[in-house]
Computed example of a mutant assay.
Amino acid sequence: MQKIALLLGVLLVLAGCGSSKFETYDGPEVTRIILFKEERRMHLMHGNTALKSYDVDLGFAPLGHKEQEGDGRTPEGAYVIDRRNPNSQFHLSLGISYPNADDRAYAAERGFSPGGDIFIHGRPKKFSKLPQDWTQGCIAVTNREMQKIYAMVKNGTPIWIYE
């Protein structure tokens, strides 16, 4: 009976050692995200203090503001994190509220779709050999970094994206 109890104890310990893509965070609140596209650098901010900073990959045509679906650009301007996808094909992802009202109006005036589904996301192994700036307009970090970002950033967090 002692051997069975010991075996069960060992199995419980080993089960707890399994890696999870979901982390916890109990530090200062991320009050905003700032991204500088030209520098390929994203900062998670608490007030005026950067809590974490990350190198990022962007859309395959990174310069300029996203104007229409398929242009490969990462949007610029003020948005918010508006959704979470724990089952993303890109590990984990946080949705950005692009297109906003101005983006939709601009595209409508010109007769095209502004696109959408812009996320901060990871980089699965099948995309590990791609060059810099490979997304369709999203912001990509490593999977390990995405786990930390996913834990730190809450829905409703403002994101400012600059050229």
Rank of each mutant, 00 (worst) to 15 (best):
Q2W: 09
K3N: 13
I4Q: 14
I4G: 00
I4A: 14
L7M: 12
L7S: 12
L8H: 06
G9D: 05
G9R: 08
V10A: 15
V10R: 10
V10N: 03
L11C: 14
L11N: 02
L12F: 13
V13G: 11
V13E: 03
V13F: 15
L14H: 03
L14R: 09
G16Y: 02
C17S: 13
G18H: 09
S19Q: 13
S19H: 09
S19W: 05
S19A: 11
F22Y: 15
T24M: 13
Y25T: 10
Y25H: 11
D26M: 08
D26T: 14
G27L: 09
G27R: 08
K37D: 10
K37S: 09
E38Y: 10
H43Y: 15
H43W: 12
M45P: 09
N48E: 13
A50E: 10
K52H: 13
K52N: 10
K52A: 12
Y54N: 05
D55Q: 13
D55R: 15
G59F: 01
A61F: 10
P62N: 07
P62F: 02
G64Y: 05
G64A: 06
H65G: 02
E67A: 11
E69R: 15
E69Y: 13
D71V: 07
E76Q: 15
G77W: 03
G77I: 01
A78W: 07
Y79E: 04
V80Q: 13
I81E: 10
D82P: 08
D82K: 06
R83W: 09
R84C: 04
R84W: 04
N85I: 01
N87T: 10
N87A: 13
S88M: 07
H91F: 15
S93L: 02
S93K: 01
S93N: 04
L94A: 09
S97A: 11
Y98R: 10
Y98T: 09
P99K: 11
P99Y: 07
P99S: 11
P99D: 07
N100V: 10
A101E: 15
A101R: 14
D102I: 04
D102Y: 11
D103G: 08
R104S: 12
A105N: 10
E109I: 00
R110Q: 12
F112I: 06
D117R: 11
I118K: 09
F119I: 00
F119V: 08
I120P: 05
G122C: 04
R123G: 00
R123K: 15
K126E: 14
K126G: 00
L130C: 02
L130W: 08
P131S: 14
Q132D: 14
D133M: 05
D133N: 15
W134F: 15
Q136F: 03
Q136L: 12
Q136T: 01
G137P: 02
C138M: 08
I139E: 01
V141T: 09
V141D: 04
N143H: 03
N143R: 01
M146K: 08
Q147Y: 00
A151L: 02
M152I: 02
G156V: 00
G156S: 00
P158C: 05
I159E: 01
W160E: 13
I161P: 05
Y162A: 08
Y162N: 12
E163C: 00
